[in-house]
Amino acid sequence: MAAPVLSRRKSIRFNRRQITLGSMALCLVFLLLIGLSSWLIGEAGLDPVLTQRNQPPNWAHPFGTDWLGRDMLTRSLHGMSLSLRIGLLAASFSAIIGTGLGLISGTLGGKVDAVITWIIDVFFSLPHLVLLIMIAFAVGGGTKGVVIAVALTHWTSLARVIRAETLQVNSSNYVQLSHRLGRSPVWIARHHMLPHVVPQLLVGLVLLFPHAILHEAALSFIGIGLSPHTPAIGIILAESMRNLSTGYWWVGVLPGLLLLLAVKAFDILGENLRMLIDPKTSQE
């Protein structure tokens, strides 16, 4: 009679949190390796070796070589590592702008809030890519242009999240009560608001990364971003367009795959972090 028919969980060797933390660690190591790879493997593979042109993937060149005989693995890793650094810079700037405006908007309210919300809405209503191109072009392209363009276009969603969180915490009974218990506004900001905003910020930052990287790649792909000499992932992909039809698939597909994996790794990292931080899902 008392059969455990209602049991929902199968027995598994690892519990859910171990799997979550494990996959996060794996993603982190993968991303760190890419980030540091340009120092680790040096620049030897970037030079043309005309005797080894257009080689398909093999043991010496796992990603093959291009029409100048450059090692594609070295180029891809250098490109990704550059992307990560640009991504970090752009995402951090975005996060700072987003958090600052979100906090100001949420705490001050009234007219300030209305203005900031209006700015956010304006940025949201403009097509992302067009704005990116215009800003990058206006500040003169290059690495600086990419960083500024990505930073200026990606803060809006984070600012919205932070503003909403600030508003909610600010109007909560426990913050109002804290005022009546004689706590100063600064103390309340430090002890009541910050613990709610920081997790949102962390998750937002990690989830901004893949966007920043993809848009950096997009900008360099259409030639506005970096100079054609730098091994950037967007430039590699743009070059490979010519070769895809001639059967040299590896020059495009493998660097593209690397980009995809890196972006996905950030995504997994961010989503898992969000799940762990939210008390509602952290027990599942």
Partner: peptide, 8 residues
């Protein structure tokens, strides 16, 4: 999901 039920 993290609830385990026994009995009927």
């Amino acid at each position: 999901d993290n609830a385990k039920v026994s009995g009927s």
